[in-house]
Design a protein around this nucleic acid. Structure first.
Lengths: 339, 339
DNA sequence: TTGAAAGCGTTACCAT
DNA sequence: ATGGTAACGCTTTCAA
């Protein structure tokens, strides 16, 4: 079923059908009705492929996430789809599983699909030293607008939505300090990532500003995974040398820590104080007493796609660089009050 | 940058370039090298659009989920992307937010994109009476293989991956019964959905088989949302007429119930027994004592996409209809042992 | 207000 | 082993 078939059935030319389809150009009311009814009857759907080729432009955008089954990205995707839908776009979605090689293939695929733009949260790459450079080259090669989400790419000029990493970490640490804790530890993220370093810096700065010593033995170097955070926390609890308070640096790290604490029968807010970065929906639902700083993740998705659309409309506008503000949510775990 | 440009630079014809690109047909080793090096240098990426138009076939598949930010679907998508990636396919992803109208538009979009097949978990639709019929018509109109996931569509013959709804509910209920509970309640899902009815039936059958009376006042009709389950459970706790054990029918319902129980200071496994359907990753991580029956969700995604690929290869094969087996995971909440 | 025809970037068939 | 060319299903320009 092609536009030609419709034209024949309606006794008009392809051009006319094309006009009623697109709404561009003049077409007699009678013929329009006629054509429309035939389209209706036949359930004709125009080929986006042919249309794209002819117009030299698709209506697809590419989205690359590193962990599609992480609720954080689920929420980002929810925000993106809302607006994609409102604008009659098509979302091509890729999951890299935090693997740079998969990311490269995804980028190549999106290039071949001639997407109008891409929204990306880069994969964490441990092995490759100049991974950022390569990623920039690949993205540049696409020659379309890019919006970077959450994880910055060094030395790039693309639009992006990020987070007040330093400030939120500073705030979280300050909360612990103001509760009177002195021996404060941190389970960091992968310090190869800028956002992890920023969070770590926020912690250090707060400690310094309040004249508290940073004890190296209370710095636990994690990698943003549940397993590592769990292992580090478990070792900590078993070591007997336990800080009064712990700051954990993302949703996975929060969970790894909480798991270990539960296992070791350390009750948050009583035996040890704790605060983290990022919310975990289920903990909220359960009114679990874990305090944290967080942001509106769904909104981050909406902002990312909006930036992309704006850039498409106005390619020369100045760089959009949005930093999501943090919100502090206290649930009691920031305290340490033996019952 | 088109195939023509590459051909010119290499001093050969488009045909030859096309051959080295696709690997089909003969091409001299020397010229191949030459062409390949030019492709390399210029970062040329062939147009999937043009290719699709010419070959009259895309390499895209469409995936429609009702709640992209629900971890259940996050896991399904993870399974799908794994295999999509291995097969050099493109995944176009749509979220319907459980809205039939959005679903309809998504289907139209996928039709225009000429996807090779679609994997769908239909939206729940409360208003429309003959929604199933309409959905079948829309899917039929696409004229491509369909794989239905988790939520059945009445009177259809498409391949599908579902769940042992009846059996898992029966098993869960039996666990409660064998723990010695007599007054057993249920928070159902939306009984407009077949899978919710099947789970309800499983409950009823187990009660009957063990000669236990089903008390209408302990049948709480939910709709698979956290909020409704929470409200129902809260009312139950406040009513004073509380069953000894409760069976909850999906991951959202589990959470709504647990929330209410926590709020009312009812400790699972001590003050009230409980068991649910579906796992909640975070509860597992925390070793929360909530018992449930569940399935391998990521695997469901893998199975769905595999079915689609098989059907594409062999259109006439008999219907694939896979029922995921349930696994029982006991964590203590099935008991009711005052300390 | 309508139609004819060229063109979009590929593939595939037929010659050579 | 390579090149020429028609075809894929649309849009768009130009002419009528």
């Amino acid at each position: 079923m092609t536009i030609k078939d419709i034209a024949d059935k309606a006794g008009v030319s392809k051009s006319t059908v094309s006009r009623v389809l697109s709404g561009n150009g003049y077409v007699n009311e009678e013929t329009r009705k006629k054509v429309e009814s035939i389209i209706e009857q036949t359930h004709y759907l125009p080929s986006a492929t042919a249309r794209s080729l002819s117009k030299r432009e698709t209506n697809a955008i590419g989205v690359i996430v590193p962990e599609i089954d992480n609720s954080f990205f689920g929420e980002i995707l929810r925000g993106i789809t809302e607006i994609v839908d409102q604008n009659n776009l098509t979302m091509i979605c890729c999951d890299t599983n935090n693997n740079a090689q998969k990311e490269e293939r995804a980028l190549s695929m999106l290039g071949q699909q001639r997407v109008r733009g891409v929204i990306i949260t880069p994969a964490i790459d441990y092995s490759e030293p100049n991974a950022a450079k390569k990623l920039r080259r690949l993205l540049n090669n696409l020659n379309v607008p890019v919006v970077v989400v959450d994880r910055e790419i060094d030395n790039c000029t693309w639009d992006g939505v990020f987070y007040e990493n330093f400030q939120s970490a500073y705030c979280a640490t300050k909360v612990l300090i103001e509760e009177g804790h002195r021996k404060i530890g941190i389970i960091t993220g992968d310090l190869g990532l800028k956002l992890a370093r920023e969070r770590y810096q926020g912690f250090l700065q707060a400690m310094e500003d309040f004249d508290l010593p940073v004890e190296p033995r209370y710095i636990y170097r994690g990698d943003f995974t549940i397993d590592t955070a769990y292992r580090l926390a478990k070792n900590m609890f078993e070591s007997g040398d336990i800080p009064e308070a712990i700051f954990t640096c993302n949703n996975r790290t929060n969970l790894g820590f909480i798991k270990a604490a539960r296992e070791k029968k350390f009750k948050l807010g009583r035996d040890i104080a704790a605060i983290g970065i990022d919310h975990v929906e289920v903990l909220d639902i359960l009114d679990y007493n874990f305090s944290y700083v967080t942001r509106d993740t769904v909104e981050m998705g909406r902002i990312a796609i909006s930036m992309l659309l704006n850039r498409l409309k106005n390619p020369d506008m100045q760089r959009n660089f949005r930093i999501m503000p943090y919100k502090l949510v206290l649930k009691g775990s920031e305290k340490r009050t033996p019952e």
